[in-house]
Design a binder for these strands. Structure first.
Length: 305
DNA sequence: TGGCTGTGTCTTATGGCGTG
DNA sequence: CACGCCATAAGACACAGCCA
């Protein structure tokens, strides 16, 4: 496959099917040629693909922008080309308006074979060094973007927002159900941490919801599971001397904002959580935004159901 | 050649400070 | 009290040097 950009959530959309496809017959392989232009491709996606048995190549020697969105199924006789407008991203595979078409060509079709060969010659197999280098330059770029106050997402003002009427009874599908005990927490545009991963927790919420003892210096360890990715981790929340309490949620980085966090208690000091971002989940985001009153203020909005 | 150890670098998690 | 800027501790990782 050939993609201008690939994200972790995009690969998550197809990884189960890809792995099943690989296992179904002997000698099946997947090769992925991924672009790095505009820093859309997430290093985590490349690592995950490689771990799942995909031969990953990064485009390194070309002019212009590497822009294809193409999947090729090859057999001895034919090649089936699925070419479209979507990248290997969750929004491209699920929520965007995209177009794709399928074309069957003979396996030896000269012009396409030459194209594939040219792409292969313009790329390098993903190595630790290559990945690290891309990751570093991408992080620097994201930091610069944040510092320059340029919003990550550009949306034309004339564009109408996703329409979920206030008080609408139809609830969009959320990764975490809004039931008794669910915490809906707004992420501020410039929360702290190197990549904006640190979320400050309101005192009332830290004590009342996460079980932090009400005295300076006390701390609580909580286990967090991202219900979208399945990642589980243990984090510490401390009552700092300046009455701030924080959590490092790297999924709520600058690139995902504006966004909401949803928490649901599982066991004692153990919570499921999900990030609902406006860019990736516009309907869900709008729905939650409406619940909180529909207008972001200087202070964060939060609600325990 | 392989294992161990010390050192440096980078990333992530955590906490302090200034300010409104 | 809480938002946003920043610093730093802790841990992961890479790599060189040494020795068996």
């Amino acid at each position: 496959m050939y993609f201008y950009g690939a994200t972790q959530s995009g690969w998550d959309e197809i990884r189960t099917h890809a792995k099943q496809w690989l296992r179904a017959r002997n000698k099946r392989t997947i090769e992925a040629y991924i672009g790095t232009d505009h820093a859309l491709t997430e290093p985590e996606a490349l690592t995950a693909m490689k771990q799942d048995g995909v031969a990953v190549f990064l485009l390194t020697c070309y002019s212009g922008i590497f822009h294809p969105k193409l999947i090729v199924f090859s057999s001895n006789k034919y090649k089936l080309l699925l070419s479209g407008s979507n990248n290997l991203t969750r929004s491209g595979l699920s929520s965007n308006i995209e177009f794709a078409t399928a074309v069957k060509i003979p396996a030896g079709a000269e012009r396409f074979v030459n194209w594939e060969s040219a792409i292969h010659n313009s790329s390098n197999a993903l190595s630790k060094t290559l990945l690290k280098d891309y990751e570093q330059q991408r992080n620097q770029r994201l930091k610069k973007l944040q510092k320059s106050n340029v919003p990550w997402q550009f949306t034309w003002r004339k564009r109408r927002k996703a329409a979920v009427r206030k008080g609408a009874s139809i609830q969009p599908k959320l990764p975490i159900k809004l039931e008794e005990g669910t915490l809906l927490y707004e992420v501020m545009p410039k929360e702290t941490g190197p990549m904006g991963s640190q979320i400050q927790i309101l005192k009332q919420v830290a004590i009342g919801y996460f079980g932090l003892p009400n005295r300076v210096g006390s701390s609580v360890s909580i286990s967090l599971t991202n219900v979208t990715t399945g990642e589980e981790r243990c984090l510490t929340m401390t009552y700092n001397s300046n009455t701030t309490m924080r959590l490092s949620i790297h999924e709520a980085s600058y690139t995902e904002r504006p966004c909401f966090l949803l928490f649901q208690p599982k066991r004692k000091k153990s919570f499921d959580f999900a990030v609902i971002s406006e860019a990736l989940d516009p309907m869900q985001f709008q729905f939650l935004d409406n619940i909180l009153g529909g207008r972001r203020q200087r202070k964060r909005r939060t609600l325990i159901f």
